[in-house]
Simulated scan of single mutants.
Amino acid sequence: MSDSATMARRSIRHGLRFPMMLVSGLLTPVLLLLLFVYIFGGTLGQGMAGASGRVGYLNYIAPSMMLLTVCYGGGTTAVTVSVDMTEGIINRFRTMPIARSSVLTGHLIGGVIRTTVTVVLVLITALIMGFDPTATPVEWIAAFGVLLMLSFALTWLTLAIGASAKSPGGANTATLPLQLLPLISSAFVSTDSLPTGVRWIAEYQPFTSIIDTLRGLLMGTPIGNSAAIAAAWCAGITVIGFFWARRAFHNRDRH
């Protein structure tokens, strides 16, 4: 635990070496929020439940932007891991009296902390813009639990990507699908309004169930079985990411 805490502090400091990635991971969801609310919100918000127009649309997409923040944060984690794997520091760690698992665990903790901070900043921005959630304290806790569960899962996955990539640039590029897939979901519009083929993808990909769960907790919309599906997706991604990351790390470690 002591080694992991040390590696977590190192991971956070290491992430500060790439300030543009940190800024991009924060600013991209904020800019998308401003873009969709103030430019498209007046039109897209018509017919939304509750208040119509920009206010209604802001209430609809604010949960989506918090999820997007988690997805964009994965790029920084993948790059910092890839730098470790390609610049020889792992060979030095092998000669030190530390737990080998602490390297990955430290990156995991550091990634989750960075993501949590940016999610809170995006939430504050949405509240300043007029986001008006109806959640009770218990529902707020549950919503942050969902985001933490997703962050934990995606961080393991990006750890695996970073450990497998041949360069930091390749690691960053490999995380792009995680940033693009939420766009084909219920993040910005209801899946009912999408063409048949796109609607099928949107309804059966992981991020739609997670967004619908967040939106239900924060805005009181029906959740149905979305929470159970979201938990299953997060658990599956975590298992895949964990074993993939451990195998990639040990394979590179031996070389």
Rank of each mutant, 00 (worst) to 15 (best):
S4F: 04
A5H: 08
R9Q: 12
R9Y: 09
S11C: 03
H14M: 14
L16T: 08
L16Q: 12
R17W: 10
M20Y: 13
M21A: 10
M21Y: 12
G25A: 08
G25I: 04
L26A: 07
L27W: 09
L32P: 09
L35T: 13
F36G: 01
F36K: 12
V37T: 08
Y38D: 13
G42P: 14
T43P: 11
G45Q: 09
Q46C: 07
G47D: 10
G50K: 11
A51R: 05
G53S: 04
G53N: 07
V55H: 12
Y57D: 02
Y57H: 03
Y60C: 07
T69H: 00
T69S: 06
V70E: 13
C71P: 06
G74F: 05
A78V: 12
V79F: 05
T86Y: 02
E87R: 15
I90C: 13
I90P: 00
R94L: 14
M96F: 10
M96G: 12
P97F: 01
R100P: 00
S102D: 02
V103S: 09
G106W: 06
G106A: 02
H107R: 10
I109R: 12
G111T: 10
V112Q: 04
I113Q: 00
R114L: 15
V120K: 12
V120Q: 13
L121Y: 07
L123G: 02
A126W: 00
I128M: 06
I128P: 01
D132W: 09
T134D: 08
T136H: 02
T136P: 01
P137L: 00
V138R: 14
W140V: 01
I141N: 11
A143L: 03
L148V: 02
S151Y: 03
A153P: 05
T155F: 04
L159R: 03
L159E: 06
L159I: 05
A160Y: 03
A165Y: 08
K166P: 00
G169M: 13
G169S: 10
A171C: 09
A174Q: 06
T175P: 02
L176S: 09
Q179A: 07
L180N: 13
L181K: 01
L181I: 13
P182A: 02
L183I: 10
I184Y: 15
S186E: 00
F188W: 10
V189P: 00
T191H: 00
T191G: 03
D192H: 05
G197W: 15
G197P: 10
V198H: 01
R199E: 06
W200Y: 14
W200R: 12
A202K: 11
E203T: 11
P206F: 00
F207A: 11
S209D: 15
R215H: 12
R215C: 08
L217T: 10
L218D: 12
M219H: 06
G220E: 04
I223W: 01
N225V: 15
N225S: 10
N225D: 10
N225M: 14
S226M: 07
S226V: 07
A227H: 05
A228P: 05
A230Q: 06
A231W: 03
W233G: 03
W233Q: 03
A235E: 09
G236L: 13
F242L: 15
F243R: 02
A245E: 09
R252E: 01
H255G: 12
